[in-house]
């Protein structure tokens, strides 16, 4: 097993898997806190406080997965990193600005007067929106092979709103899990709306993607891959069907089952991601560059893999520790 991992010819794949893992963890983890930012209720200060308190202990670590994903792209596939960021110079910059605004707004809001707090909250919401839309745009550009054609940009804009919906969905189900009272009722409503739109969006991508990328269509229709590709949408859409029923029945006595919608949304995210990953492997720039063409020297990848294998279990350990420390319904955050 270890020999296989460290063999020269397998290293690019191993790092592609690690990178995919960080991307999906990022999408789920920062997805819910960006989603909470998008949904931040500007009409009710108390609900804003408790929405933000629900993500307070986690957002820093969530964003670190983006640093790891970009870091892995940079260090394991440097040629692809240059190519992609060259094509995405402006969207990437705007995403960073969004992340800067929301990251600092989060900390400033807790330390200023009440009137200024509301302004930082607006900035938090705005930053979350910018970061989300640009991430969706980048995803769309990836699917379109980073080509700035009219169709490509149009699809990417649609994708921007798709990702915003997806983050709103996972953000609202996070709030269902973490909140109580009026905020909880609103979160249930948000989850229903965003779930419906997300469903339509995913359905659309399932039809558009194979039409744009011929190699995707070929892969989707070739046995045995076709079975996998067929199973993923099935699982995904059944989550939506069951999820809707669950949302209708919540809240139950004593907030039992409040975690179910969030978990189901995570499954939806995993399905979408698996669908994309299976469609595009081994490309890192679809149709142009593969992971094998762009990988760093094996001796450099090997020393990073040693570190990753040693440290990832520890990261998993203290992430679990942090989430258990702040489990259950959110209470007000105090530096005490």
């Amino acid at each position: 097993m270890i020999d296989w991992l460290f063999a020269d010819e397998n290293l690019p794949l191993v790092f592609a898997v690690l990178m995919a893992l960080s991307v999906i963890l990022y999408a789920v983890l920062d997805g819910y806190d960006l989603g909470v930012g998008l949904l931040l209720p500007m009409d009710n200060a108390e609900q804003r406080d408790s929405a933000i308190a629900s993500i307070g202990p986690f957002w820093d670590a969530n964003e670190t997965w983006l640093v790891l994903a970009i870091g892995l792209l940079l260090v394991a596939f440097p040629a692809a990193h240059s190519e992609i960021l060259h094509a995405l110079y402006l969207p990437a910059t705007f995403m960073l600005i969004g992340l800067i605004l929301r990251g600092v707004a989060f900390d400033f809001r807790a330390k200023v007067s009440v009137t200024q707090k509301r302004q930082w909250d607006y900035l938090f919401k705005l930053g979350s929106l910018i970061a989300t839309l640009t991430q969706g745009f980048v995803l769309g550009m990836f699917v379109m092979g980073f080509e700035y054609t009219v169709g490509g940009v149009f699809f990417s804009i649609l994708s921007a709103f798709g990702v915003a919906t997806a983050y709103a969905l996972i953000g609202s189900t996070w709030l269902i899990m973490k909140s109580e009272g009026e905020l909880h009722r609103r979160a249930l409503r948000w989850a229903k709306y965003s779930g419906a739109i997300a469903f339509a969006g995913i359905l659309a991508v399932c039809f558009i993607n194979p039409l744009i990328n011929s190699f995707v269509l070929e892969r989707w229709t070739t046995i045995p891959m076709a079975y996998f590709i067929g199973a993923i949408p099935l699982l995904c859409f059944s989550m939506f069907a069951v999820g809707y029923q669950v949302l209708k029945r919540l809240p139950l006595e004593g907030h039992r089952g409040d975690w179910v919608p969030f978990l189901m949304t995570v499954v939806v995210f995993l399905c979408c991601f698996a669908g994309l990953a299976l469609s595009f492997y081994p490309y890192v720039v679809p149709g142009q560059l593969t992971i094998y063409e762009t990988a760093s020297a094996p001796e450099s990848l090997r020393i990073m893999l040693v570190g990753a294998l040693l440290v990832l279990p520890m990261i998993a350990g203290y992430t679990v520790f942090a989430y258990t420390t702040f489990r259950g319904k959110t209470t007000a955050l105090r530096y005490y």
Binding site: L68, Y318, A322, Y335
Partner: peptide, 17 residues
Amino acid sequence: ILTAFFLEASLLGVMLF
């Protein structure tokens, strides 16, 4: 990123709150 970023970012929440 592996040895430092995650350590500080994950435990910061516990340290603060």
